[in-house]
Simulated assay, not measured.
Amino acid sequence: MTEQDFIPKYSPEILSNGSVTWESPSNIALVKYWGKKENQIPANPSISFTLSGCKTTTTLSYTKKMSEGYSFEVWLEGVEKESFKPKIETFFKRIEAYVPFIKEYHFKIETSNTFPHSSGIASSASGMSALALCLMSVEKELSDVNVIQSVSEESFDDDYFNKKASFLARLGSGSACRSIEGDLVGWGWHKDIEESSDLYGVKYPFEVHDNFKNYQDTILLVDKGEKQVSSTVGHGLMHNHPFAEHRFEQAHENLSSLINVFKEGDLNAFIEIVESEALTLHAMMMTSMPYFILMKPNTLEIINKTWRYRNDTGSKLCFTLDAGANVHLLYPESESKEVVEFIKNELVAHCQNGQYICDQIGFGAKKIA
């Protein structure tokens, strides 16, 4: 599908008011997206595990208005957040052509997270995907009362709904496009995945071995402060980066390798690719100009202890990192008891205030009745 497929061909009769609620999860990339082109287009493909417990719930209430321009308020955990409004307004500007009704309403956006705010877990993926899904539900309501025609004149089915929600979410936060569905979602064109697209995330289409069913993700909260360099700035520093082109090629190659890894259930190869991807991500940060480091001393302590534990026990535990100091520990469900015990005994001392979150892979967003 192209951008044109998401521009509706109608002048709807506006609904007077209503509300809708969605919950949408965060995700953790296995092959990392780092570097982007205009309009939130990724410089390389990525693939992620959708999480289950770490999620955002958003209620979007809408009331018809007469004034021009965008009108909205944002609430987090029952507290109005003026500081969130510039990002939402930027998002609305990017998506207006695809959901033109947004200027016809005043919106109240009420959101909450299952993980602590300012915990160091990025909420943009879960938050922007939940908001995009709410907007798609409003469009679906409009389509029902107006017999909307998409550009292709196809039915407004679940596939179209999910693709457009992912497309909209991407324009708010790139990784948000991977939170609509699960349990594995790819984003960005890749030669081995026929339906892959730079415009939206797609469910992983190939066989996945039972070794990866109910995979666990325990998130160790090393640093809950604001990053000294934002992800947006970091992505921009990939322009003219001396190693950028090789990095983009590496991501394509690693995603190709993972297809067979998932099929065969090769946990050792999975560990090698996932940990290499995490360290490469941070190597790109340390070799950009200006250079920066987001890992903390406790991040390195956790990585070294994870390697030592795996060497001593034969465990299939591995780590990955987002663009920050926190560590995601990935491991098979069969090892849950032993790994959690290891975390309590050896790693919790390296977590800020001893905090960590036990999660596992999930299957995407859900509308709340």
Rank of each mutant, 00 (worst) to 15 (best):
H209Y: 00
K213F: 09
I148H: 07
N27E: 04
L220P: 08
E139D: 10
M295R: 12
G172A: 02
E77H: 15
F206R: 13
K103Y: 04
Y10M: 09
T90H: 05
Y356P: 00
L294A: 08
W22R: 14
I109G: 02
E341H: 06
G265V: 07
T218G: 01
S83K: 06
V147T: 09
E264V: 01
M1F: 01
F270S: 11
F6G: 07
M128Q: 02
G182D: 07
D5I: 05
I180W: 07
L317V: 11
G35L: 07
F161L: 12
M284S: 04
V99T: 14
L60Y: 06
F212V: 00
I102M: 08
S166C: 07
G69K: 08
V222K: 03
F248G: 03
T114N: 15
A244G: 10
K191I: 01
Q149D: 00
E194S: 06
E110F: 11
Y98I: 07
F49C: 00
C351S: 02
M286K: 15
T114L: 05
L281H: 11
K164M: 08
K85Y: 05
G53L: 13
I273D: 06
S334L: 02
I357V: 08
G234I: 01
K203V: 02
K337P: 00
W187P: 05
V202I: 08
K81N: 04
Q4S: 10
F167K: 05
G362D: 10
M284A: 11
R247P: 03
